[in-house]
C-alpha cells in the first residue's frame, strides 16, 4: 500500500533530482553519480529528521540540495572555491561514518544477517529509526514496552556475541 512517505519521496525525486543532476553535471559528474549523490543526500536527510537534528525552518528540498552539494564536492574533488556555497551549507553536515566500510568483514556480515534477522530489525527500529519502545512493542507484538526493552538487550547481546565469535574464528583461520 502506498504511504504518505512514498508520495513525499516521489515528489522529492520529481522536484529535486533534476536540480541535483544539473549541479553534478556542472561539476563534471555523470548520471550514475548524480543518482547516488541524490540518494545519499535523501538518506542523510531522513536520518537527521528521525533523530530530530534538522535546523528549523529549512525546507527539505533546500537541505537535500545542500547535502548533495557537499557530497558532490567531496566526490569530484573540487575545491570549495570553485562552487558557490550559500550560507545554509554551514548548518549541513554529513555523518562522519556515512561512507565508512562495513564494521565487520563480509562473511561475518552475511552470517549475522542470516542468523539474527528479527533481532537486527528490532535493533534497527531502536538505534536507526529512533522509534519509541511503545511503538516497537506494538510493531513487534510485545505485551509491554518493558518486554520490548528486555528483548532489545537480549538481541544486542546475541548479535554482539555472534560478531565476537565470528571475529575469533576469522582470526584463527
Amino acid at each position: 500500500m502506498r504511504t504518505p512517505e512514498d508520495q513525499w519521496l516521489e515528489d522529492l525525486y520529481r522536484n529535486t533530482l533534476p536540480r541535483v543532476a544539473a549541479m553534478v553535471y556542472r561539476m563534471g559528474g555523470h548520471l550514475e553519480m548524480a543518482k547516488d549523490i541524490f540518494q545519499d543526500a535523501v538518506i542523510i536527510y531522513l536520518e537527521k529528521q528521525q533523530a530530530q537534528k534538522l535546523p528549523p525552518g529549512v525546507p527539505a528540498e533546500a537541505y537535500i540540495t545542500g547535502i548533495a552539494r557537499i557530497l558532490s564536492i567531496r566526490k569530484l574533488k573540487k575545491s570549495g572555491t570553485a562552487v558557490s556555497l550559500d550560507e545554509m551549507t554551514g548548518e549541513i553536515s554529513v555523518p562522519a561514518d556515512y561512507y565508512a566500510p562495513p564494521p565487520v568483514s563480509r562473511p561475518v556480515l552475511d552470517y549475522v544477517r542470516a542468523a539474527g534477522k528479527r533481532c537486527l530489525k528490532l535493533l534497527q527500529a531502536f538505534y536507526y529509526d529512533h522509534h519509541s519502545l511503545t511503538d516497537i512493542a506494538a510493531d513487534f507484538n510485545f505485551k509491554t514496552p518493558h518486554s520490548a526493552s528486555v528483548q532489545k538487550y537480549k538481541c544486542l547481546e546475541k548479535v554482539r556475541e555472534q560478531i565476537k565469535q565470528s571475529d575469533y574464528a576469522e582470526t584463527l583461520s
Binding site: 561514518d97 534497527q124 538505534y127 529509526d129 548479535v159 554482539r160
Partner: peptide
C-alpha cells in the same frame, strides 16, 4: 563488540534504505 554491533545495525539500515 557492542560498538561494532551498533555500527553494523546502522550500516545495514543504510544499505536497506
Amino acid at each position: 563488540y557492542q560498538r561494532k554491533t551498533m555500527q553494523l545495525v546502522r550500516w545495514l539500515a543504510r544499505e536497506e534504505k
